[in-house]
Design a protein around this nucleic acid. Structure first.
Lengths: 95, 95
DNA sequence: ATAATTTGGTTTATATTATAAACATCTTTA
DNA sequence: TAAAGATGTTTATAATATAAACCAAATTAT
């Protein structure tokens, strides 16, 4: 009937992050921050969680002299996202 | 970009309850419990929250001698559900 | 030169939320 | 009449989300 929803993805901000990364290949911290409207603190925490779960990978590098955090979705992350989409549709009555 | 998600509906159990009521007109507590797989305690709490928000109305009656709790979605509830569906689609890349 | 501001984040504290365990009440059955 | 079942509610706890506070380096203003 109702498929369970991955708690890691059933979160407004984490879902937004994943949604961006699904179509973007990679994205920098400030870009994600701007697109989602999240505070830096919240974004930092949620990125950590997605990363700890293996849903995204995070590369810490430099852009000129400034630190730069780049995020990419992993194959497991993509799979989890697709599963989540399928699951939540069971609640939405979407055809 | 990403539309905000009504926190009241962005909850696995409450969304399931609403989803049932959207297509069922009305439903009794034990039926919702069975369909959602929720514990009675959790269901009771979440029904209260939906009711307090005006998303559903709850009728306390009797079925023979036994208490019977009937839930129905309200027009505001239906509107909120439809808005939620629209909003979450902005995250899902659903066409 | 140095003070103030901006960039790019992280850590931590708090408030909210979800959830199940414990409880209450009445009914039916042994 | 004692035990078990039905129908929920209340309460305690654990998990979660979120922003405020913080940190360090770079840039800009004085």
């Amino acid at each position: 009937m109702f498929e369970p929803l991955d708690p890691l993805l059933h979160s407004e901000l984490r879902l937004a992050i994943m949604s961006l990364l699904v179509s973007a290949e990679e994205a920098e911290f400030p870009y994600i921050k701007e697109q989602t409207g999240a505070t830096a603190g919240n974004l930092s925490v949620q990125i950590d969680k997605l990363s700890a779960a293996g849903y995204i990978e995070v590369e810490k590098t430099f852009k000129g002299k400034r630190p730069c955090t780049i995020c990419r979705i992993t194959p497991e992350g993509l799979k989890a996202f697709e599963d989540y989409v399928k699951a939540i549709k069971s609640y939405l009555q979407v055809k």
